[in-house]
Structure formats: C-alpha cells, structure tokens
Design a protein around this nucleic acid. Structure first.
Length: 415
RNA sequence: CGGGGAUUGGCGCAGUUGGCUAGCGCGCGCGCUUUGGGAGCGCGAGGUCGCCGGUUCGAGUCCGGCAUCCCCGACCA
C-alpha cells in the first residue's frame, strides 16, 4: 500500500483524553479512532492488525475442529429467560433495545443461549456430536466504566467458541485441546513466554476455569506464578486450601499483575438442559449435552500487543501481526531514485512481501519518525545516498543501526 | 454507582480581581529557502470558549443544572 493513499495521519502529541499507552500509541500512529469512551473504530492499519490476529486465532481453532459461524447480534429475550440471565439483576451489563412492536431484544454480549438453542434444529443423535462452533464477532457490554483504551471496552471483537460434547470425558479431552491451541496462539503472537495458564473461579460445574493471563503492568488481575511449573493462580481464588489442592507452595509463587487474554470454561449441562436440547444415544435414551465456552479477546489482544511491543518512539509489531512487513521509504524527488524505489516496491510485492511504501514528498526525519511510530518490523530506505554506495538501506525496527544491501540481498533477507 | 480532575479552532495548551477584535505551539493552505531523525522565514484560513439557564451595563472568566471525557474505587455472569 502507498502511504499517500492511507486514510489516516500520524500525530505528534497524544490526545489528552487518553492516558492508556496502548490507546495513545494506536491513535497517534493512526490505527484507531475513538468514538466515545470504550468504543473505537479501526482505521485501515488497525483493521489489518485486527484481521491478522483474528486469522491466527482462526487457524488454530480450525485445527482443533472448530466450525466458524456468524451469529446474529440481536437476540430474542425468551431464550435468556430460560437460563435466567435476562434480568438486569442477574446480568447487569446488557445492552437491550425494543422493536417497534414492543418486543424486547438483547444485543449480543455472549452467545451460549443462542447457540445451544440453535442446536435443537441440527442435533438429535449421538452421531451428530461432538461439535465445536465459534465465531469472531463484536460483543457489546454495558460496562460501568470502560478504561485502558482497547483493554476494556463497551464494544470489542472477540472469538467465542462453544463445545458440545456427549460425555464428560469427551468434553475434558476437547477442553485440553483448546488449552493447547490457545498456547499455540500466544506463541504465534509473540507473548508465549509471558502468558500463563491460570486457575480462576469456575462456577457451578467445575471448581476452576482456566484463564490465560499475560504479564503486564496495566493488567487488572493479580496472579501468583509458579515459574517451574509454568502455571499460575488468580488472586480471586488464592488461598491455602486451593494451593494445597493444586500442589503449589506459597513461597515458590511470585505475585504479578496480568491481563486476561483468554478464558475457557466448563459449563456442564446447564445451558443445553435449560433450553431443552438433548441427544439420543446408541440405546435410544435421551441424554444431556455438555458445553464448554472458550473466549479470546481479539481487540484486547491488539491493545496488549501495542502496549507490550513498543519503545519510546512507537510500536514494534511482531512480524506475525504487523500491518505490513516492510516500511519502504524513498528520499528526495530525484527521478532515478523514485524509479528505483517504485521498482523495489513492485518487486517486493510480487514476491509476496507486504510493503507500506512511503511515497510522500516529505522530509526524511518525518518518514523516520512515522516508520518508528507505525512499527513495521523492517525498514528499507531508497535514496540517492544509498544508491551511491550500491544499494538500499535496511534496518530492523528494533535495531539501532542500518546496513546497506544490494536488492537481491534484501529480497533474501525479507523472504 | 461513590470519589477526584477536566472540557477554549483538527491536536496540545494559555487566558489575571468579569472589561476592547479570545491568544500560543503543532497541524493545514500559499510563496521562497531547505532536504538523512517530526526544517526556517513570510503570508493566510480556521473558534456561537461542551450544552441550558441565571447574575451583570458587560461572562471564556461568577452562580446553578446537565452532558461528555480521564483517573481511583466498586463491578466484570
């Protein structure tokens, strides 16, 4: 993409109404636009990053048998009444609206009811199960207090997966598979080393749920980590009895702030039973369906990554999710130089390298500053100076020094 | 929802005990000079000072109410 075609513009000073680093960086670099507290629009660069994160999640969930769907955002009230989650006393962060004819509808904040209910049309036999259904879609939650930029919004992008199993054993096996898939995702996003599977409060059907917590100073959660075992316990369930049960020793644990970047739950038969969805087994008797839900905040992850992968000059995206692999700048308005840059831009694209080509007629300093702020992992400069010494100038975003390369060498470097 | 802070051109800010035509920096447009880490000079465009009401000869400034934003706390099935 050509920089000159970008809809956005970088700004030097962070807006005064944001104090969260992730929001400041993403707004300054032109990734997002704030609409109101806790609600952001994604601009061209931001949309690409969001899609890149979603794609990694999609690939790993598909790999464990997930089927992607897109559920409606408007939801009927009656299914929520069946599970007793419609009342504002029970769930206080609903957005609700009313149709012209007076019918109340809910605006999607999660989808257990909806999906379990839809299952009735398609699941009747043990031969139809298990199924693993997920979507990557906006969620709306009427948070009392949105905060920390993308970390806690009222509208956010989430991957939500729901498993429907025939037995506890079948459920448990998938649950572990999902946990493994999550680990792979964090690895691909570059935060595998600071993300911990964490015991958290479970609910009715299991003592614990599993959260994935990434260490971060902006985290809302406090976790206790056992570095040797690579697991952690959320403060909300932290006590002597729990530690004994989990075989953890208090003096081996380290307390750290963390961000919840995933949460997997066993839901037992509560939802399917409440919505009266069952399956027939081999012997012809009706059985309950066991559910699990597996959340992953895509937009929150974008905020976390921007916050984590950054220095004083801007963002440093991991290659796996960067909007473009390369920031290519051309200096000066000399025709020969411009032609060389254009050619390099085309050649790189032909070989499948995503390039943001800064074709603006602005001074070098501004291009350097924008390159750092936007944070593509590789920077290439074509200039009279570089051509004179035989090539182009290459620098990794997180390196101090650049080097001169011939273009074929550069192609190899970026391959 | 409790507490604290804020709201003045697109962005960041100043504006004294109420007083002339509301300023500055960035950004934007034009011109000239520049051209390797957000250039310099000049000219210029752009603001019903968050909204409603009140006090006053006169309100960005004082008073009341409301809205919005940020932070702390509570909340986060």
């Amino acid at each position: 993409m050509r920089y000159s075609q970008l809809f956005t513009k970088t700004i030097k000073e962070a807006p005064a109404d944001e104090t969260a680093k992730n929001a400041q960086l993403l707004i300054r670099a032109g990734y997002i636009h704030k609409e109101m507290a806790g609600v952001y629009s994604y601009l061209p660069l931001g949309k690409i990053v969001l899609d890149n994160i979603a794609q990694i999640v999609r690939e790993e969930i598909n790999a464990i048998g997930g089927s992607e769907v897109e559920l409606s955002i408007l939801q009927p009230k009656d299914i929520w009444e069946k599970t007793d989650r419609w009342d504002d006393e029970k769930v206080d962060n609903w957005f609700k609206s009313t149709l012209k004819n007076g019918t109340e509808v809910g605006i999607s904040l999660t989808n257990e009811e909806q999906l379990a209910n839809a299952l009735r049309s398609f699941i009747s036999s043990y031969q139809d199960l298990p199924v693993y259904i997920y979507q990557i879609q906006k969620k709306f939650r009427n948070e009392l207090r949105a905060k920390s930029g993308l970390m806690r919004g009222r509208e956010f992008l989430m991957k939500d997966l729901y498993s429907f199993s025939r037995s506890q054993k079948e459920h448990d096996e998938f649950y572990e598979k999902a946990a493994t898939a999550y680990k792979k995702i964090y690895g691909r996003l570059g935060i595998g080393d600071i993300t911990y599977r964490t015991y958290a409060s479970g609910g009715i059907f299991s003592k614990y749920s599993d959260e994935f917590q990434t260490l971060s100073d902006v985290g809302e959660d406090t976790i206790y980590i056992d570095e040797r075992k690579k697991i952690a316990v959320n403060k909300e369930v932290f006590n002597d009895e729990v530690l004994r049960e989990l075989g953890l020793k208090k003096d081996e644990l380290v307390e750290k702030p963390a961000v919840e970047v995933g949460n997997i739950f066993s839901l037992g038969t509560k939802y399917a039973d409440a919505l009266d969805v069952h399956y027939m087994d081999e012997k012809g008797s009706r059985n309950s369906i066991i559910m699990g839900s597996y959340g992953f905040g895509i937009s929150r992850m974008m905020g976390l990554l921007a916050e984590h992968f950054a220095d004083e000059n801007g963002i440093i995206w991991p290659e796996s999710i960067a909007p473009f692999k390369v920031y290519l700048a051309v200096f000066g308005a000399d025709n020969t130089v411009l032609k060389q840059a254009e050619k390099l831009y085309e050649d790189l694209q032909k070989s499948g390298v995503e390039v943001l080509f800064d074709d603006r007629d602005v001074r070098p300093g501004e291009k350097f500053a924008d390159a750092d702020l936007i944070g593509c992992p590789h920077r290439v400069v074509v200039s009279e100076k570089s051509l004179k010494v035989g090539g182009v100038e290459y620098k990794k975003r997180d390196f101090d020094k650049s080097q001169i390369m011939k273009t074929d060498e550069l192609h190899k470097q970026l391959a």
